[in-house]
């Protein structure tokens, strides 16, 4: 925005607040840009990293659409998990890389929020191998889950599905969005470089493709440690 005090600049600076301009942006400008250079959906979960502290306490925000979002359907989802609590604890124990996990019913989704160490696909695969039946029960109440059960026989497809439903984690530095968008379409990131003033548009277009996102990879109160390191330090076995 310009700080030149001319009348035109002052008017332009007020545009984002004006109703007609907001209407135009929402219904004409954004759809036009989506048509012209829409962004592909970016994959969910944390990105691979060489930085050891990035590879512990990683966040999963899995949004699974409920097959039946009515109170009856929601009750079925609650029951599916309530009947498997023992299995979930057994799974946590044997997989060994999970700090915590919880399930939420929010709007039309059943959400699994968890914190785990290491690679995403190993975490899911080890869970399938250990307590695949819990996922199978869950898939009964989830939209599109039928063709993934039994997950023991659809390991690859199940992992791909989870990755597609795990929220994209926006980079902590917004400018890195450009590079991720480039890489997703097979281009060399930031080559050629992007003009900084196009960042808001890049972000809006990405939020069109990824409606629900995680703002960054989450914040920790202390440097990353693995679940096993914490258990070892506290003397509770690993």
């Amino acid at each position: 925005m310009s700080d030149d005090g001319g009348w035109l600049n002052r008017y332009v600076n007020t545009l984002p607040e004006r109703g007609w301009f907001q209407f135009l942006s929402k219904y004409v400008v954004v759809p036009y840009w989506v048509w012209r250079e829409g962004k592909p959906k970016l994959p969910g979960g944390p990105r691979p990293s060489q930085q050891p502290s990035d590879s512990t306490q990683r966040m999963m925000n899995l949004l699974m659409p409920l097959k039946d979002p009515s109170p009856i359907g929601r009750a079925k989802a609650v029951m599916a998990l309530a009947q498997n609590v023992d299995e979930i604890y057994a799974g946590l124990d044997n997989v060994g890389t999970v700090h915590s996990a919880r399930f939420l019913l929010v709007e039309d989704y059943i959400c699994m929020i968890s914190v785990y160490d290491g690679d995403f696909s190993n975490y899911i695969r080890d869970f399938i191998a250990t307590i695949g039946s819990v996922f199978d029960a869950l898939m009964q109440v989830v939209e599109g889950g039928d063709k993934l059960a039994p997950c023991e026989h659809n390991v690859e497809a199940f992992i791909d599905w989870v990755r597609a439903h795990d929220l994209f984690q926006a980079p902590d530095f917004p400018i890195e969005m450009f590079g991720l968008q480039d890489a997703q379409v097979g281009k060399v990131p930031n080559h050629p470089p992007h003009a900084l003033q196009t960042l808001p548009r890049a972000l809006i277009l990405q939020l069109h493709a990824n409606r629900n996102i995680s703002l960054g990879g989450g914040y920790r109160g202390y440097p990353g440690f693995s679940a096993a390191q914490i258990r070892q330090k506290l003397g509770v076995g690993w």
């Binding site: 050891p52 590879s55 512990t56 290491g118 693995s226």
Partner: peptide, 17 residues
């Protein structure tokens, strides 16, 4: 799985993580 979690991160044992 071996390359990322075991060779290059040492997730399998807290002593080497």
């Amino acid at each position: 799985a071996i390359m990322c979690d075991w060779i290059n991160f040492g997730l399998q044992d807290p002593e080497i993580t």
